[in-house]
Design a protein around this nucleic acid. Structure first.
Lengths: 166, 166
DNA sequence: ACTGAAAGACACAGACT
DNA sequence: AGTCTGTGTCTTTCAGT
């Protein structure tokens, strides 16, 4: 029985992943440029079903993107800062405008809505402290409805992975 | 003139990236499976130099990895938590052992050494609150030398990108 | 669902400008 | 540092099991 207010899922199939799908995902997470042949050799399957499984996972959105990950220190983005932000007002429009502004800022590579004292957590990258200060003062703090802000500086990267399937 | 205590850089070439390299990086960040041909068409260069530039950026570590990015909600990792940790003691050995322990935890996908009240910030993913509670109580808090811990829950993802070059 | 074959596209290396 | 050309390998489709 289904409650009347329940909407139909847009994704027609929730896509149940089996062990072979997960094995393929493990390999693709590690190296997105691995060939279908190589995968099919490793998981003891021929190329066609591997290809088909990958296509299905792409279509269903299990695989969001294939991305080249760049070393931030080597492209003049050596400084990483975690920045906490609270808004003055919490009505829907104010929130929406804040989100739109954040999404357009190239320096902000991640932004989450969080529980606790602050409303948002941002991960910001900049060339150095001067560049971050400039961003903080002239861009971020200028956003309409901005309340408190607090910066926490990343002094070292201990671990950084995208391996959600293991 | 060089100070005597300065060590020689291991990376022989600091690798100066020009506009064409950056254009290639932009495309590869967006789609790691783009073909060399497609890149060469878009940046008005033939395949060979594009191929050579990519190879150099891979070798020099500018391109760290090609990764398939997986939708965490579709692989039973719907809950994301930011977890702050401080250690009881701050000697070198204690820190090293903590780091080793963290690096082996699959639930921890990021870990940074940070400024401020806490020593580390962890990004943790779990299937649900029960699974996170289990991880928090039975794994993370059991690490030797663990001091204070604080969890901040991610309620919504506003932005998530890996585009450091833009 | 999977296998195997076959066509077309691609990566990669070489000779040259 | 770049273009052009060729070879071997890969993706991708299709008929068959």
């Amino acid at each position: 029985m289904k409650k009347p207010q329940e909407k139909e899922e847009k994704t027609v199939t929730p896509l149940q992943l089996d062990d072979k799908d997960l094995a393929i995902l493990r390999l693709l997470q590690e190296n997105a440029r691995i060939t279908v042949r190589e995968i099919s050799d490793k998981i003891h399957l021929s190329a066609t079903p591997v290809h088909e499984r990958i296509r299905r996972m792409e279509e269903s959105g299990v695989i969001r993107q294939y991305a080249a990950l760049v070393d931030h220190t080597k492209v003049k983005k050596g400084l990483m800062v975690i920045c906490y932000v609270s808004l003055k007002q919490h009505n829907k429009n104010a929130g929406t405008r804040f989100i739109k502004a954040i999404q357009q800022m190239n320096e902000v590579i991640e932004c989450y809505n969080i529980s606790g004292e602050f409303d948002f957590m941002l991960k910001v990258v900049a060339e150095n402290m001067d560049a971050y200060y400039d961003f903080h003062v002239n861009t971020l703090s200028q956003v309409e409805n901005m309340g408190h802000m607090q910066s926490v500086f990343v002094m070292g990267i201990i671990k950084q992975t995208h391996q959600l399937v293991y």
